[in-house]
Simulated scan of single mutants.
Amino acid sequence: MAASAEPDLDAVDRRILRALQEDGRITVQALAEKVGLSPSPCLRRIRMMEEAGVITGYAALVNQNAVGLPVSVFVSIKLERQRAPELDAFARAITAWPEVMECYLMTGARDFLLRVVCADLAAYEAFLRDRLTQLDGVGSIESSFALGQVKYSRVLPVG
């Protein structure tokens, strides 16, 4: 499977993906049993999906409240100009900021949507003043504070 082409995933591959998303620390033996394979073919399928870019990595999920980052802010950014150089410059700048957990290039009235985490309102104000408002080309910034999290999932509905 080439990384540039969309891989052809069968039902077993999708069961493997679902199980790995639910428990990234599952052993190959337990995973193989769960999806109805022996360990060798199961591991071979995992490696093929890694090589194809379907599986991009493994990580621990950390509770943001438990590490002192309880505030989530969704920030809509409108640039002064929507040309490729300006869009690219903004994207490059925010990739270095650890507070920015997610960034999406958007259609509609705003150009980017960010999810920012921080310890408190003062930390967000510092982020806003010292980083976002200092970027050239930012036309407007609109912040929305999350009051609570209703659902959070990293498990894609792969079937």
Rank of each mutant, 00 (worst) to 15 (best):
A5Y: 13
E6L: 07
E6K: 15
E6F: 07
D8P: 01
D8T: 14
L9F: 08
D10T: 11
A11H: 14
L17A: 12
D23T: 00
I26L: 02
I26N: 00
T27V: 02
Q29M: 10
Q29I: 08
A30Q: 10
A32M: 08
E33D: 15
K34V: 03
S38K: 11
S40P: 07
P41R: 03
C42K: 01
R45H: 02
R45A: 02
I46E: 09
I46M: 13
M48F: 00
M48K: 08
G53A: 07
G53Y: 13
I55D: 01
T56V: 14
T56L: 03
A59F: 15
A59P: 01
A60Q: 15
Q64H: 15
A66E: 13
V67T: 14
L69M: 14
V73N: 07
V73A: 09
V75M: 03
S76T: 05
I77E: 00
P85R: 13
P85T: 13
E86T: 06
D88M: 11
A89V: 10
A91R: 12
R92C: 01
A93Y: 03
I94R: 02
T95Q: 11
T95D: 08
A96P: 00
P98W: 01
P98Y: 03
V100Q: 11
E102Q: 15
E102R: 14
C103A: 13
L105P: 06
L105V: 11
T107G: 04
G108F: 04
D111E: 02
F112M: 05
L113D: 02
L114M: 05
V116F: 12
V116A: 08
V117G: 11
V117K: 13
D120P: 12
L121C: 03
L121E: 12
A122S: 13
A123P: 03
Y124S: 07
E125L: 00
R129W: 01
R129L: 12
R131S: 06
S140I: 04
I141S: 06
E142Y: 10
F145P: 11
V150G: 05
K151Y: 11
R154W: 07
R154L: 15
L156S: 05
G159A: 12
